[in-house]
Computed example of a mutant assay.
Amino acid sequence: MSSMSRLAVLALALATAGVQAAAPQVKSQAPGYYRMMLGDFEITALNDGTLDLPVDKLLKENQPGQVLRALQHAYLGTPLETSVNGFLINTGGKLVLVDTGTAGAWGPSAGRLLANLKAAGYQPEQVDEVYITHMHGDHVSGLMLDGKPAFPNAVVRMDKREADYWLSAEQMAQAPAAAQGGFKGAQAATKPYAEAGRLKPFDGAVELVPGVSARPAYGHTPGHTVYVAESKGQKMVFGGDLMHVAAVQFADPTVTISFDSDSSAAMPQRQKTYAEAAGNGEYLAFTHVAFPGIGRLRPDGKGYIWLPANYSIKP
């Protein structure tokens, strides 16, 4: 090969080296589930996806600029990309799902709970009971899939105050026109379960299956409920929408949000749940804390520090 030919080959190799070395960016996350043990119970967090929320406009701050300062302190901004999580509790005797996600009704970045349930090793037909913390669309919409029950063998349960409110034609008629879509969505999501005799509201504090109880936390909605799983002295509280923005409401639990139907009732429920969990070392599992949304609290002045659950691969 002549010296000129060798130079041409070298030049071509140098010109194409960068192209060959760069792999295309994948731009997708791993399946959104996280598993841990709570005594003898297996807990699986399921990510439905995320929603972009203008939290600076939704939260009711106590001092001007409080929300933006807290977000900036946490290296966050607005709109805030906010997780939507559900949780599976396998007691060994029952498979229980707490909340069902959006079913894609709130945009393409959410609606993944069912796929992540399957990725986690379960099938929707295996779910025995579905517990709804409240009937806002990002918690109840996932009950349905393509017009059919997403969990065909499950009993669906929520506080009777929640059912009486959202499933009432009279309450819907009294609501502002902009809010009536929420009623229609809740009614559509629960209708086939009701027709099959598998919609079974409960009244207040009650054990639903051995080791899993309902506890009233009214305020965010008329029948908002938290669920408590307890096994071998370990406890986890599934707090629903007692929490929306971790960067703000852990440091200051008195900050409320416009989604509350009664903020004056919702705020003390949040304060009580935080204080009990921090005092007893209980796990908390929240719908809108960054996935997997499971951790514990330490008191810090008038607020709390959030300590996410330590990652483990041990069974």
Rank of each mutant, 00 (worst) to 15 (best):
S2N: 14
S3K: 11
S3Y: 06
S5D: 08
L7M: 10
L14M: 12
G18V: 07
A23K: 14
Q25F: 11
Q25G: 13
K27Q: 14
A30C: 12
P31G: 06
G32S: 10
G32V: 03
G32F: 02
Y34K: 01
M37W: 03
L38A: 02
D40I: 06
T44W: 02
L46S: 00
D48A: 03
D48E: 10
G49W: 04
T50L: 05
P54C: 09
K57V: 10
N62W: 09
Q63P: 06
Q66Y: 09
R69M: 08
L71G: 01
G77Y: 01
L88K: 01
T91V: 05
T91Y: 03
L95N: 02
T100S: 14
A103D: 09
A105T: 15
W106V: 11
P108M: 08
S109E: 14
L113K: 04
L114M: 09
L114N: 00
A115H: 09
N116E: 07
A119E: 05
Y131L: 15
M135R: 02
H136M: 13
D138T: 11
H139Q: 15
V140I: 15
M144W: 02
D146W: 09
F151D: 00
A154E: 06
M158D: 10
M158V: 11
K160D: 12
K160L: 08
K160P: 02
K160M: 10
E170W: 03
Q171M: 10
A173Q: 12
P176G: 13
A179S: 13
G182I: 05
F183I: 08
K184H: 12
K184Q: 15
G185V: 07
Q187P: 06
A189K: 00
A194S: 07
G197C: 07
L199P: 03
F202I: 13
D203Y: 04
A205R: 13
V206Y: 05
E207P: 04
V209Y: 08
G211C: 04
V212L: 11
S213Y: 08
A214K: 00
R215D: 10
Y218N: 06
G219Y: 03
G219F: 01
H220Q: 14
P222W: 03
H224C: 08
H224L: 07
T225Q: 06
Y227G: 02
Y227R: 01
A229I: 04
S231E: 07
Q234V: 09
M236N: 04
V237W: 00
F238Y: 10
G239H: 03
V248R: 00
V248H: 00
Q249G: 09
Q249N: 12
F250V: 06
D252M: 04
T254K: 09
I257P: 00
S258K: 15
F259M: 14
S263E: 13
S263F: 01
S264A: 15
P268Y: 07
A277Q: 06
A277R: 00
N280A: 12
G281H: 11
E282V: 09
L284P: 01
F286Y: 12
H288C: 05
A290P: 11
F291I: 07
G293H: 05
I294Y: 01
R296T: 15
R296C: 12
L297G: 07
R298Q: 14
R298L: 14
P299G: 07
G303R: 01
W306N: 01
A309I: 12
N310Q: 15
